[in-house]
Design a protein around this nucleic acid. Structure first.
Lengths: 246, 246
DNA sequence: ATATTAGATATGTGATCACACTTTAATTTC
DNA sequence: GAAATTAAAGTGTGATCACATATCTAATAT
């Protein structure tokens, strides 16, 4: 009878666990900052400086940073140096491929569930936000709208764990995408194209066409990836003119 | 010219960064312990206790734990309580599906590269280790052999980032799989079947058949998942006889 | 004017302490 | 003797200090 004396899963219902500690708020704050592009790829960060900025001591920041290091959003570039994960072409390529697998799968699931008009409406609303933001050159709004669109879709996959994983990946891609906003012309072109692709995604979800949903999302990811790559190639060329970096 | 004043990626070559701090060693130690099933799902952990056990102070353990929390290997079950992620059927199901996407993709890539006899040899060797371990009922060796087989395959995908992500997922699944070793009969049956499936994987890699590789790996994941689920269903039934838990 | 060096500042890391709180054990009380 | 109460450990969390070392600044020497 005591063959299986493993610690019983005492809490079958997944506990919300709202525990609001300082480190948790610091973590969420840094996470949001990364996602909104308030940090540049490769930018150095300092525990004490962040602690001052956030009006707290070093401790909570240290643990928040430790979590972000585990998520590869921040890395140690030297013995006593922390920085936001820099852009590296081949690395980024790998992340893009992985994202296509994961986000494509999430889209596939979202499109294969029961008919969901509320989801379709929400997606259309987010896409409209992007469209309107572009007309007034509000790139912050365009970025948050884009994020809202994708996360709304992925949440509909029904797997919160999948959403978690994807958002971790966005944490690494986030600063890179956001920094590309500096090339306004490229940014606008990409997002204008993105709005059209999103329409295809919405149609696929509305028609419950799994394959089309996956395909469209992958196209969206890939096309923005190509733009990013082009942006960094240009930036690299320009930077080479100024600094004679190794 | 200063259109793109983003922080230049000063280190194009990905630095190894060997910095051997105490917290890093603690982290690796806990990680290995989780992977080898030295922790039970749902088991409570204490920072101070671990610090004593590892012969250090609380600080390095705190940051190591923070990283493991970010990887969802450890979670806070209460305001001041930490535990190893418990088994929860539906949650586990989600992780299995995600693993099938990611590990299937990695296998697909490993099988679609140039002909790689050294990889095939290594895989065969790992699979033999499992086979031999089963004959002498050495379940530890069977588990590490299985892990070596899968990671060898995924490493051949060429994406270290993919390997990282997968190993993070194994960190969550690890204690669950390892604890199922308590049912020796089920364990042996599953792994005996697993050895056969691994052969199919090896064949697929040898013949560079992408689809077969993905399909076989997914079968491996799914079949072990079904066994785990069965194990926990049995354990749950038995536990219900003993404890009148809610 | 350039290169070298010495000092000062800032860095992450580890240890320790104080605190609020929960859990457990012992004690007291009825 | 059983139940209620109280005291004692034990918990994660946050703050602070000490330390070795890396990085930058400024003065010195060439």
């Amino acid at each position: 009878m005591n063959t299986f004396d493993l610690t019983k899963n005492s809490k079958p219902m997944l506990a919300p666990v709202d525990v609001s500690t300082v480190q948790e708020r610091v973590y969420q704050s840094l996470r949001l900052g990364l996602l909104r592009g308030e940090f540049l790829p490769g930018e150095q960060v300092s525990i004490r400086a962040l602690a001052n900025m956030l009006g707290t001591s070093a401790m909570p920041v240290r643990e928040a940073i430790a979590r972000l290091i585990a998520e590869r959003a921040i890395e140690q570039s030297g013995p006593r140096t922390l920085r936001v994960a820099p852009y590296h072409a081949s690395e980024h390529e790998a992340y893009i491929r992985i994202r296509m697998q994961l986000e494509g799968y999430a889209a596939e699931r979202a499109a294969s569930g029961p008919k969901n008009p509320k989801l379709v409406d929400a997606l259309r609303r987010h896409n409209d936000q992007i469209k309107e933001a572009l007309q007034v050159d509000d790139y912050d709004s365009a970025l948050t709208g884009n994020q809202a669109f994708h996360f709304e879709l992925y949440r509909a996959s029904g797997y919160s764990q999948l959403l978690d994983l994807i958002s971790t990946l966005w944490l690494r891609t986030g600063p890179i995408v956001a920094s590309a906003r500096k090339d306004t012309s490229l940014f606008e072109r990409v997002f204008t194209h993105g709005v059209k692709i999103h329409s295809n995604v919405i149609d696929a979800v509305a028609q419950r066409d799994r394959a089309a949903a996956r395909w469209s999302v992958n196209l969206d990811i890939r096309s923005s990836h190509l733009a990013i790559r082009r942006f960094y190639k240009l930036a690299d060329g320009n930077a080479a003119d100024v600094s004679g970096a190794d």
